[in-house]
């Protein structure tokens, strides 16, 4: 497997975190749903412009695939609302642990059954242990040392 691809995957998350931070800051001015809306508008314009200048596959937008593949953006918006609601009632740490756990297990299950266009990869004991270790590690990392007041 290519190291470059793994690096790109890592960089994706760095962008994700930066984008979330910017979004949170934007949310303070205009509200969190509105911030997500602005994020999507700017993103659409930016990606649309790139496609218009000819960077892209030139394939037709509408192929013979199920309409569910076009609904990713909807899930993204719902996810943000769920996140805002939960953080308010549970605190960021617990929400993050629950979020990461279900995210990892769901991805394992999707691959085990080869759903949504994923090639089948069996959910082995090694995978189960790996996911459990990540969750345990994430739990330790999320325990920040609170600064003592002077």
């Amino acid at each position: 497997m290519n190291t470059l691809i793994i690096l790109i995957a890592g960089l994706t998350e760095v962008l994700n975190t930066t984008s979330r931070l910017l979004n949170a800051a934007m949310g303070m001015y205009v509200g969190s749903l509105e911030a997500s809306f602005i994020n999507h508008v700017v993103g659409s314009l930016f990606a649309g412009a790139l496609i218009l200048v000819g960077i892209g596959s030139n394939a037709s937008f509408f192929q013979d695939i199920s309409f569910i593949y076009y609904l990713g953006g909807m899930i993204g918006f719902l996810m943000l609302s769920a996140n805002n609601y939960s953080t308010l009632h549970l605190g960021a740490m617990l929400v993050y642990i629950l979020f990461v756990s279900t995210q990892l297990f769901t991805s394992g299950i999707i691959e085990h059954f080869g759903l949504i266009g994923a090639p089948e990869v069996p959910f082995t004991l090694k995978r189960f242990l790996g996911i459990s270790l990540i969750i345990a590690g994430a739990f330790l990392v999320s325990q920040k040392k609170t600064l003592k007041r002077k």
Binding site: G72, G76, G117
Partner: peptide, 29 residues
């Protein structure tokens, strides 16, 4: 999120990765 990442990637395999990113943001908008 796990489902969404896979949906977007599969869409990208069919219509191109930039087009998929564009549609994700457009549908979100």
């Amino acid at each position: 999120l796990a489902i969404m990442i896979r949906l977007n990637a599969t869409l990208g395999e069919h219509i191109g990765i930039l087009e998929s990113s564009f549609l994700v943001h457009l549908v979100g908008t």
